[in-house]
Amino acid sequence: MNKAALFISIVAFILSAVWLYFERDFEPLISTVLCLGGVLGSWTYGRKSQRDNQYLREFDAIKARWLAERELRQPNLDDARWLLSEVLDFLHRLRVEPNTDKYHAEIDKLTLSVKTTQNMQIYLDGGASYSEFWHQGTEAIEKISGITSKI
């Protein structure tokens, strides 16, 4: 939140309200209404920015855990599948945000991709299906990272 802009808007609103109190005319009324718009605009812009940064930080933490899990290359993929379920939860929360309407198709496609990766069967095929699991998961994580940086 831009605290300086919010502070200036509040001070201007108070001064124009005092002006309106002493001089009941059209100019002080317009000034008061415009200052109120500035206060609300500064306040909501700051809240939107914080919310967007929160999603970016949250996904960066999930991405870091995914990359660490990938580097460990454990034979049991339960933790990786659990991380993919967190990614799905993140995508569902992201999709209901009001400023993500134009990304719904991409989010839906990524949700399907993550769910497909999560349900992938690993076979005794010399590590091909194991490598494909990590490749598809990392690819989906990178695409989601691209979307969160655009929002």
Rank of each mutant, 00 (worst) to 15 (best):
M1F: 04
K3D: 01
K3G: 13
L6V: 02
L6S: 08
F7W: 04
I8R: 09
V11R: 09
V11C: 10
V11M: 13
F13Q: 06
S16G: 00
S16K: 09
S16Y: 04
V18Q: 05
W19T: 02
W19L: 10
W19K: 08
L20D: 08
L20K: 07
Y21R: 03
E23C: 06
E27Q: 04
E27W: 13
L29T: 12
L29R: 07
L29W: 06
S31F: 07
T32S: 13
T32Q: 10
V33F: 10
V33G: 05
L34R: 08
L36P: 05
G37D: 00
G38I: 06
G41T: 11
W43R: 08
G46H: 07
G46M: 02
G46T: 00
S49G: 05
R51Q: 14
R51C: 03
N53E: 15
Q54T: 14
Q54H: 11
L56F: 05
F59G: 06
D60C: 00
A61I: 15
A61C: 04
A64V: 13
W66S: 01
R70E: 15
L72A: 05
Q74T: 10
P75L: 04
L77A: 07
L83D: 07
L84K: 05
L84H: 01
S85F: 01
S85H: 00
E86L: 10
E86Y: 03
L88Y: 04
F90M: 07
R93I: 04
R93Q: 08
R93N: 04
L94H: 05
P98T: 05
T100L: 08
D108H: 00
D108V: 01
T111G: 03
T111L: 02
T111S: 09
S113G: 06
K115V: 08
Q118C: 12
Q118N: 11
M120F: 01
Y123F: 12
L124V: 11
L124G: 13
L124E: 14
G126L: 09
G127Y: 12
Y130G: 07
S131I: 06
F133R: 04
F133S: 05
H135S: 07
G137V: 08
E139F: 02
I141Y: 01
I141D: 02
E142C: 05
E142P: 02
I144E: 06
I144R: 00
I144A: 03
S145L: 08
G146T: 09
I147C: 04
